[in-house]
Amino acid sequence: MAQADPLFLGIDGGGTGCRAALWRGGPIGQGAAGPANLTSDFEAGLANIGKAIARAAQAAGLPEETVQTAIGHAGLAGVQSEAMAHRVAAALPGRCRVTEDRDIAIAGALGPEEDGAVLAIGTGSFVGLRRAGTIRAVGGWGLQLSDQASGAWLGRAALAATLEAIDGMRDRTALCDALLDRVGGTPQDIVGFAASANPATYGTLAPMVLGAAEAGDALACALFEQGAQWLDRALGALGHAAHEPICLTGGLGPRYRAALDRPGRRFLAPRGTPLDGALILARRTDGQA
């Protein structure tokens, strides 16, 4: 492989973890590290991004000074302003563009050019639509105000519903009992859990909600239906047309397919991951994608 080939760096940072990949004529190394939601914890997120890049360089057998020549794109959860993006870019090696994670999720799911809707549902969530190269998106404003249907949202909503069940305001289900046991056994333990929880922490409860829904638990099924209704509203708000494909991505995205299926709707399997999308956008910066 010619060493004159440009070196590209892609970074995907989210509430559960972050990944980095290096490309020189093809993929040459990947690395992963912990959460990188910059709104939740800026300094820890930036440190984890650095670890992921270092591990990708190690996997590729590249010294640190070579990575400094990379052309990169980083899509990061929690980047809410140009000022924050510039601050992160200054801390990254090479010439790296920093955006929120929507662009890389759409590029990875649909490839460089295809139109369609992307419902990205992991620890957080957003719904985006690309049409003729223009991207519009809704949601993704963070768990405190948004991220409906996501793993973090499911975990927090299930705990809130459990407290209502304890208060006699709704039926108590097996999921309520399981969550209560998980956090310590008392309503006060739920409050204590929530006092220090972040999106990733709430997201650890999502598999319990998922398992309960598969078993027919009424609360879990109701939460998934509520999430699906929001996703449908999001598609409507973006003006999604029936002929435009829908791509469900993230750890939870495919779980909503049955609830979102309608006559005439066309679902498209993701072409790649958000990390693939980051590399697509990095290479496009250099005119190679």
Rank of each mutant, 00 (worst) to 15 (best):
A4M: 11
D5W: 13
L9I: 00
D12Q: 04
G17Q: 05
C18K: 06
C18E: 05
A20T: 06
P27K: 07
G29E: 00
G31Q: 01
A32T: 07
A33L: 07
G34Y: 09
P35F: 13
I49K: 00
R55L: 10
E65A: 14
I71W: 06
L76I: 12
V88N: 04
A89E: 06
E100D: 14
D101M: 07
R102I: 05
I104M: 01
L110E: 10
E113F: 00
E113Q: 02
S125M: 08
V127P: 05
G128H: 06
R131D: 11
R131M: 13
A132D: 15
G140A: 04
L143E: 08
D147Y: 10
Q148A: 12
R156Q: 11
A157R: 15
A158S: 00
A160G: 14
L163M: 13
T173R: 15
A174I: 03
L175F: 15
V183K: 03
T186F: 09
P187R: 14
I190E: 01
G192W: 10
A206Q: 05
P207S: 07
M208Q: 13
A212Y: 01
A218C: 12
A220P: 05
C221H: 13
F224E: 04
Q226W: 09
R233K: 12
G239M: 12
E244A: 00
C247P: 03
G250P: 00
Y256W: 14
R262N: 13
G277P: 06
L279W: 13
R284G: 04
R284M: 07
R284S: 00
G287N: 15
